[in-house]
Amino acid sequence: MKPLLSDITVNGKKIPAELIASEAQNHPAPKSKPGMAWMAAARALAIRTLVLQEANRLGFEPDPQQVAEGKVETDEEALVRQVLDVALDPPAPSPQSLRAAYDAAPDRWRAPTLYEAAHILFPVKPGDVVALAKARAAASAVLTQLQRDPRAFGGLAREHSACSSRDNGGRLGQLISGDTVPEFEAVLDALDEGSLAPEPVATRYGLHIMRLDARAQGAVLPFEAVAPRIAEMLEKAAWVKAGRDFVARLARDAEVSGITLVAAA
């Protein structure tokens, strides 16, 4: 069996294991599977090497451009961009493809959902296990009181909540999709109107006792209103596919050892 941390070569160009290990820090992976980060880093460096070799074959000279205020491309970044500018030219989506994408999933193209909700926040800093345990005990005790007497929500929010909404009895006013963190919004979508979440809800801010007062799901938007967004989505997908196809063509013609870039036919 090959050792995981080994050099790879691309058309005779060696990519040292040390460089791959350094690049792996930029590729998240589960703690139990560090090899996934290493493999992702190895693939990324191998692909970058293939593209730079293609730039050399085409005789390109780097032409760095400013990409943000005070930030200019490196020579290698410029060469990669120049190659991709020449190699990738996916067709624009047709009117028929836009309509087909809309008709395939019209529910995807809705106006934002409106919510009226209230919460009681028990703050916890990420990673603070001791504070989380204390907050969970406190939140569970308050939730038990509310399950016995839901009308006590406002008073308990004023007494316990760390959010400024406590001054309004925990009421958050009208929210729309995207106003809150995903885990909070997921509970708003799952609750029945007028009900409490059965357990404290964990987010990056801490634990929340949540109540949904009202929800109005956004209507499906007409095709004409969302056609530009669908076009943008399809254009991005076409660029991604064109990039993958281009890399696959380079890899098929390359001599690569230490990693597999092309799946077996």
Rank of each mutant, 00 (worst) to 15 (best):
A231I: 00
V262Q: 07
R252H: 06
M1F: 13
A242V: 05
A42L: 05
A21D: 12
L79A: 01
S94Q: 13
D253N: 15
Y102Q: 01
F184C: 09
R252S: 04
P90I: 05
S97K: 14
D75T: 05
P198N: 07
T180L: 15
H27E: 10
G155T: 04
A111W: 00
M1W: 12
G127H: 01
A131W: 01
V240L: 15
E77C: 01
E185F: 12
R136G: 04
L84M: 12
A190P: 15
I176Y: 12
R166P: 04
T113C: 05
L52D: 05
A55C: 00
V51L: 11
G35E: 11
R48L: 04
L121V: 00
G35S: 06
W38S: 09
P64A: 01
R136W: 01
P30F: 08
I176H: 11
D189R: 14
R57S: 13
N26A: 06
L50F: 11
R215M: 05
I176W: 10
A186W: 12
L221D: 01
A104P: 06
Q217D: 15
V129Q: 14
L188A: 07
R48G: 09
L212I: 00
A37C: 07
Q96H: 10
G258M: 07
V83Q: 08
V86Y: 12
L207P: 01
A265H: 15
W109S: 09
A41F: 08
A37F: 07
T9I: 05
G178M: 14
A104N: 10
V220F: 03
L98D: 01
A141N: 02
A104F: 04
R211T: 01
R108L: 10
L114P: 06
V142Y: 00
A197D: 15
V187T: 15
K31M: 07
M233W: 09
A105F: 06
S161A: 00
E255P: 04
P106A: 08
E224S: 05
L4S: 09
A238I: 03
A152E: 07
P106Q: 09
P3L: 14
L4R: 09
T203Q: 03
A135R: 00
H119G: 00
Q25S: 11
P93E: 06
H160P: 05
A157Y: 05
V10Q: 05
D7A: 07
A141L: 01
